[in-house]
């Protein structure tokens, strides 16, 4: 039996994101939110640990009111309780870590599962930050997780070799995309998940470091975009292009 905390982030649906042709800036208005990709793997892994060894999964997101739908999805995937923390500000891992750590300190848990790097901002700082703040061992970049009594064992992927590492509980585990294939709960289940306990809380913290966005825009793409639907014509033209380039 394990008490599991899973941390998930809600992000804008990047695949649907359009770029304003004039300014190069992303159009974020009316863009739907979704659960961040690696967070989904984290939720899936948390639920698998529960299903295999027994226990309870508490899902936490620092995201504000609009996170309700994502939280329902997390509950539908198998989390037992949800906590939504308000006051989120984009792209501020120091604030996120402070808020999450403050909340986590009030809870009972054996493991915390999270993604190793979020798919939108790609910062990857939270696992290390939380490990320091909560003074817990970090088993990072897991492609496999096994529990054995009061120990967690993780296969961590590296460039030249994989490492099997372990630590005592409580511990933080950050997962890679390859660890599992997240389940897709049917829509009815997402609706039903509304019956599970879900809390919305506000945690006030102070963050003193300074970071400001100067701009955020798409790099200019000046590709020619000559696309052939006639295969033979395309092959003819493209082989010419390749030849002139290779010589």
């Amino acid at each position: 039996m394990y008490n599991i905390i899973v941390l998930f982030k809600q992000i804008l649906d990047i695949d649907q994101m359009k770029i304003d042709e004039k300014t190069g800036e992303p159009v974020t208005k009316n863009l739907p939110y979704k659960i961040e990709d690696l967070s989904k793997n984290a939720i899936e892994e948390a639920v698998r640990v529960k299903e295999k060894y027994g226990g309870k999964v508490i899902a936490i997101t620092f995201g504000g009111d609009q996170a309700t739908m994502s939280m329902k999805e997390a509950l539908a995937m198998g989390a037992d309780e949800g906590i939504i923390l308000k006051g989120y500000r984009e792209n501020n891992p120091t604030l996120t870590a402070e808020v999450l750590a403050t909340k986590i300190k009030t809870l009972q848990y054996d493991i915390i599962i999270m993604g190793n790097q979020s798919a939108d901002s790609y910062t990857g700082l939270l696992p290390g930050k939380l490990s320091s703040k909560l003074n817990l061992p970090l088993l990072g970049n897991a492609i496999k997780l096994e529990m054995e009594g009061r120990k967690a064992r993780v296969t961590r992927s590296g460039e030249q070799r994989d490492y099997v590492i372990e630590s005592d509980l409580p511990a933080i585990i950050s997962v890679e995309q390859e660890i599992n294939e997240p389940r897709l709960p049917p829509l009815v289940q997402i609706m039903m998940a509304g019956k599970k306990p879900m809390k919305v809380e506000e945690i006030k913290v102070n963050v003193e470091t300074y970071k400001k966005v100067i701009w955020n825009r798409a790099p200019k793409s000046d590709r020619k975009r000559v696309v052939f639907e006639d295969i033979d014509k395309g092959v003819e033209e493209i082989s010419k292009v390749i030849r002139s380039e290779v010589k």
Partner: peptide
């Protein structure tokens, strides 16, 4: 940037109480 240095950057940013910018 690597998985190891990303974890280190996160830890150091808390130990040294300073921002870290990755990748």
């Amino acid at each position: 940037s690597s998985p190891l240095t990303r974890d280190i950057a996160g830890m150091l940013s808390e130990i040294l109480k300073t921002e870290a910018i990755t990748e």
